[in-house]
Design a protein around this nucleic acid. Structure first.
Lengths: 213, 213
DNA sequence: TTATGTATACTGACTAGTCGGTACAGTAAT
DNA sequence: ATTACTGTACCGACTAGTCAGTATACATAA
């Protein structure tokens, strides 16, 4: 089956991603990827001239997946609600939904992994990560900004910072989930972020919110 | 200066910590540490029989520093305020203070770094990290729980989850600060966590809070 | 139908260099 | 004498990366 090289390439990326999230990029040898992907050494270097090219491809793919998810969820949220504030709340809710169904312990985020080995990569690779984070900030931040304009919040905040915080909570919760070996933490913490939004915008009035246990 | 070996040991740990936060543990060679610490190969292995011993020492020291900071800030907060809720707010405020003065871009957290290379370390080392995080949860969580009991919050929350969230925000903000090369993000995000507490406990009534710009 | 050509996909042995770790002879301060 | 080093030479294991060659698919054309 020498036909579709794209399948092999994805297979390599899948194996590499798992390995990198377990042992870091520098801690993952090409040999280990070969074994996980059940391919030969030659095949690997046929698809990726150097290990650094693999790093770039890994980041690129992850950034694209992330971006697609944001777009998909934002569109759904925009269809499910009219008001920008409600749209954001639904948007975050959709993320909470997928996190709740997550069973893998510690899936982790490639961006976080790479950012803690940043010294190994060139500026171009790091720029790709920043671009991905910026996309979240733009997409979610402008929506939050519109919500702020329509519903003056109780405290002084701006859309960008609020959007950044969501990303922070996300990343931090992943680390906590890893350390504690409890994937539920992610949904739990993102739920609290939603609480924050609801409180800041004065959505919570009485005891309408049914929090965790 | 062959006297105090502890100085040399700390010197090695300092150099190693910086290197690890830039390039990860696996990505940091012993040679690089020797150069940074300006010591010879023999000296390194005199103090640390293996590189894994260095990892353990690194984690151990970081955990101790963390713990001391929690204790110190908690004691100060307990002297500065009487009410458990106010104590927690002051406690978080003290952290925000030190983060505001931080200029180093991307200091980073060793625990986060190691958790993204978790596959390289033995269970004992990982247990040390979990223990450190648990200490935060216990110390801050029980204080928050007491605040909850005295000041029923607007939403359903518990002390432990709230304490965990603070840690998540902390860790996540460090990653964001690295990616964006902007250390101010850390204080910014932790301030938002404080906002969350204030809103949840109904401290914010009018426009008394002077948020960011 | 069969031979030929060509691009892609893949194999696995090989190489040059780096890694953590060892050995050990010597130095310097207490 | 003991502790804390320096310095260098060395080892085997592992590292990323190379390369000559093989297999497959598909096109062209005799």
């Amino acid at each position: 089956m020498p036909r579709d090289g794209q399948i092999t390439k994805q297979n390599i990326l899948d194996a590499a991603e798992k390995a990198v999230l377990e042992r870091g990029f520098a801690g993952t040898s090409v040999d280990e990827i070969l074994e996980r992907a059940s391919i030969s050494r030659g095949t690997f270097f046929y698809h990726f001239p150097t290990k650094d090219d693999l790093a770039r491809a890994l980041i690129h793919r992850h950034a694209a997946t992330d971006r697609e998810m944001v777009e998909r969820f934002m569109e759904r949220a925009e269809r499910l609600a009219r008001d920008p504030l409600q749209q954001v709340l639904v948007f975050i809710g959709l993320y909470i939904e997928v996190l709740e169904e997550m069973e893998d312990l510690a899936p982790g985020c490639l961006f976080a992994s790479f950012s803690y080995e940043a010294g190994l990569f060139d500026e171009e690779t790091k720029a790709m990560i920043q671009e991905a984070v910026d996309h979240w900030r733009d997409r979610v931040g402008t929506k939050l900004q519109r919500a702020i304009e329509r519903h003056p919040p109780r405290i002084a905040v701006n859309g960008e910072t609020l959007a950044d915080l969501a990303y922070s909570v996300f990343e931090g919760a992943m680390i906590m989930a890893r350390v504690r070996k409890d994937p539920r933490i992610m949904a739990e913490h993102l739920s609290q972020y939603r609480n924050y939004l609801e409180l800041a915008f004065g959505v919570v009035e009485g005891a309408e919110v049914s929090g965790g246990d």
